[in-house]
Amino acid sequence: MSQNSGNSNNLVVPQAYGALDQLKYEVAQELGIAIPQDGYYGNMVTRDTGSIGGSITKRLVQIAEQQLAGRF
């Protein structure tokens, strides 16, 4: 996730870019999907990029649920 990837999504905590980028590579590796080293995703299959994004979202929700459960 480059900081200027052309999308309109802005992180609330800009320092999170590194952690999200690492998570992207971890999820892709778990799914057996190769991330282009040049950062250009135009040649990737939409299903693969969607799988990575969906898995990242699922994992972030799980982390948030665990943190909330620990508060009560």
Rank of each mutant, 00 (worst) to 15 (best):
M1I: 04
Q3Y: 01
Q3M: 06
Q3I: 05
N4C: 05
S5A: 08
G6T: 07
G6S: 04
G6Y: 01
N7T: 12
N7F: 01
N7S: 13
S8C: 10
S8V: 10
L11G: 06
L11Q: 00
V12G: 04
V12Q: 12
V13I: 05
P14D: 03
P14A: 01
P14T: 06
P14L: 00
Y17F: 11
Y17V: 03
Y17R: 00
G18S: 01
G18H: 06
A19V: 08
L20H: 03
D21I: 00
D21L: 03
D21E: 05
Q22E: 09
Q22M: 11
Q22I: 09
L23Q: 11
K24Y: 02
V27F: 00
Q29T: 14
L31F: 04
L31E: 08
L31T: 10
L31A: 12
L31M: 09
I33L: 07
I35T: 08
D38T: 10
G39I: 14
Y40K: 15
Y40L: 15
Y40I: 15
Y40F: 15
Y41Q: 08
G42R: 15
G42Y: 14
G42D: 15
G42Q: 13
N43L: 13
N43H: 14
T46H: 11
T49V: 15
G50E: 13
S51N: 15
G53Q: 13
G53C: 12
G53H: 12
G54P: 04
S55G: 13
S55H: 13
I56Q: 04
I56F: 02
I56N: 03
T57F: 06
K58P: 03
K58F: 10
L60S: 05
L60P: 02
L60Y: 03
Q62S: 08
A64H: 02
A64I: 05
E65V: 06
E65Q: 11
Q67I: 11
L68D: 04
L68W: 02
A69H: 11
A69L: 10
G70N: 01
F72E: 05
